[in-house]
Amino acid sequence: MKKFYSNKLAIFFFTLPALLVFSVMVFYPITQVFVKSFYDWNGLGSGTFIGFENYVKLFKDTVFKLSNKNALIFSLFITIFQITLATVFSLVVSDKRTKGRNILRVSYFIPVVLSVTVVCQLWLAILNSDSGLLNQLFKAVGLDYQQNWLSDRNHAIYVIAFVNAWQWMGYQFALMMAGIKAIPNDYYEAAKIDGASSFMAHRKVTIPLLKETYKICLTISLTGGVKAFTEMFIMTKGGPGNATHTLTYLMYKAAFREFRYGYGMASASILVLQCIAIILIINWLFRDKEKKEGK
């Protein structure tokens, strides 16, 4: 048996394909992000080493500041929107007495399986200022609320965030459904015997036990702002002006539109660091509470 499992040739051929593809297409590129962020590089040749200059420029860039502000707005908007709704809906739908549970479940989840491109085009059609669904709806009910939804500097980012939140709410909903399913029924029986109402039972039993699920949901939605790109790319082109730029959009534009690859790489490395920071902070917050409860 030992010989069977230490067949050198088999080990080599079993691990090689995965290691090779991963190294070439993920690991090497990510090292390049950090290395080339210290270079002045137009994408051709190997560029010249300029130390931290790209980072210095980036931190002085007003678009970078705006991108961070947008990431914050975007993240907070989708986090609050998705987590609140997903919590309510998952509690209602997982209750076996709710009528039409399956219709609700499918309705919430359908947008998740659509392509982001389709979702963006669909919402462009809905938000279209001349003949979009939303303005037509306002007209039909006689409300004077028609407007050009994506052309307002201050509001466009919220509209974009809404489209993202609309598509992915069902994802967080499904995560919570899975979390609730894993809670043993005995807990509720015990709460019921103690005379708790279903609201109290959820507050004291379900929600605390969904801690791991909330951790995942928060990680996904809070890093969502930093990583947001497709909605901006398709719906607003980062505009009006620079109003809906995010870090990813800034990076994309620097590299593929302006051919400032080094600058783009610096943005990309900040993007990675921000994502890691968010993950670490969330893990730290959730771990700390565990310890306190232990005391």
């Binding site: 993920v26 690991f27 990076m251 990309a268 990675v272 993950i279």
Partner: peptide, 18 residues
């Protein structure tokens, strides 16, 4: 390690590699 790397981050170097 790949779990922690957002695809957005490797967009530029991956395009170059390919």
């Amino acid at each position: 390690l790949g779990m922690f790397i957002p695809v957005q981050a490797i967009l530029i170097p991956v395009a170059k590699t390919v």
